[in-house]
């Protein structure tokens, strides 16, 4: 072996990038979190292979991706079903598989859901920048050369602690409950009231909770803009800029809410109607442009229970994969 094991990108769009679970602890420098928009799918993909759940993988966003493995390895695909094939052989979603050097993996744009995640045994071994391998697409650093992927890119693969033993034909796990199964599915996320909730009249509250919002096409990893009725506060709200987190639902003066997400600025000054609970952010990561979205009010306790349920699912994925890999 003359160098690290590699995968070579044969075709990709700039919407696809190297992501892990994000860059925490540096927001005070104005550095956003980045990271997988569907952290459940990336975590599951890693756990299928016996990786750390936060190992870097490739986020494949609503577009095709083809790559060639330049070394024998194992990989997994979770999240939206991109009807993947390995040398033409169809692969199910939420699936782990062995690959030989020279084999070609092809993933298509999904028909339901928005993002698929590719993990490889040992993880994508791009340099760690400020504690993370995630691509910060807004600022242009981290990941692979700080940008989305393109044909010709070669990505190094880390060395797994123990090469996973993948049975013939591979194995998989059932997706988490709530994974969109058709293009027409409406996504529901749970929301906790935020600081300026009381600055809006009751009619705006009613509208916020009852509307089937539509994801506008100018939405991206920075934030989601929602089309629907306007939410107007009782009187104009002027706030100094303050720190914001992914999941914050802001209401700009025009009244259509927007949700700040992984590549958002670290602070903002619009009034906040609510915050999508952390446990449901992955559902936003699978929401398609033009897709329907509803907000359901939740308490802090319900948010913690939802997080525990996500953890229980991932623990189950880990158990199932150890059983299949006989470790």
């Amino acid at each position: 072996m003359t160098g690290p094991a590699m995968i070579e990108i044969l075709a990709a769009t700039p919407l696809s990038s190297v992501q892990d679970l994000g860059r925490s602890g540096v927001r005070r420098y104005g550095i956003g979190v980045s990271g997988a928009m569907d952290p459940m799918a990336l975590s599951a993909a890693n756990l299928l292979l016996g990786n750390e759940r936060g190992a870097a993988g490739i986020e494949i966003t609503a577009s095709p991706l083809r790559l060639r493995f330049l070394a024998d390895t194992a990989f997994s695909l979770c999240g939206a079903d991109g009807a993947a094939t390995l040398d033409g052989l169809p692969l199910p979603p939420f699936w782990a598989m062995a690959a030989r050097a020279g084999q070609e993996l092809s993933v298509r744009a999904p028909r339901a859901g928005m993002r698929a995640y590719l993990a490889v045994a040992g993880g994508i071994d791009v340099p760690v920048v400020m504690g993370s391998r995630s691509t910060d697409l807004k600022t242009g650093f981290g990941g692979h050369e700080g940008r989305g992927l393109a044909a010709g890119d070669r990505l190094p693969i880390g060395t797994p602690a123990a090469p996973p033993r993948i049975p013939e034909g591979g194995f998989g796990v059932a997706p988490p409950a709530g994974m969109p199964l058709s293009e027409a599915d409406t996504t529901e996320v749970r929301v906790i009231r935020a600081a300026q909730y009381g600055r809006f009249p009751e009619a705006a509250h009613e509208t916020f909770w009852s509307t089937a919002w539509t994801l506008r096409p100018d939405s991206n990893r920075m934030g989601f803009r929602l089309a629907g009725p306007a939410l107007i506060p009782v009187e104009r709200v002027e706030l100094l800029s303050h720190g914001i987190l992914p999941g914050v639902v802001q209401v700009p003066p025009a009244g259509e809410p927007m949700i700040q997400l992984n590549d958002a600025n670290t602070c903002g000054g619009y009034p906040k109607m609510g915050v999508v609970i952390g446990a449901d952010l992955w559902r936003l990561g699978q929401l398609r442009l033009g897709g329907g979205l509803r907000f359901a009010e939740a308490t802090r306790e319900e948010a913690l229970a939802a997080r525990a349920a996500n953890e229980a699912y991932l623990a189950g994925v880990s158990r199932a994969s150890r059983l299949a890999r006989r470790v």
């Binding site: 033409g88 052989l89 169809p90 796990v173 059932a174 199932a320």
Partner: peptide, 27 residues
């Protein structure tokens, strides 16, 4: 995650997944 069975039009390729055995989350 798929609405259709894997068997499609009846032509199959060696190594193709035709169905699943589910035990808990494991497929």
């Amino acid at each position: 995650q798929r609405g259709r069975p894997e068997t499609g039009n009846g032509a199959v390729r060696k190594g193709q997944v035709l169905a699943y055995l589910q035990a808990g989350l494991l497929l």
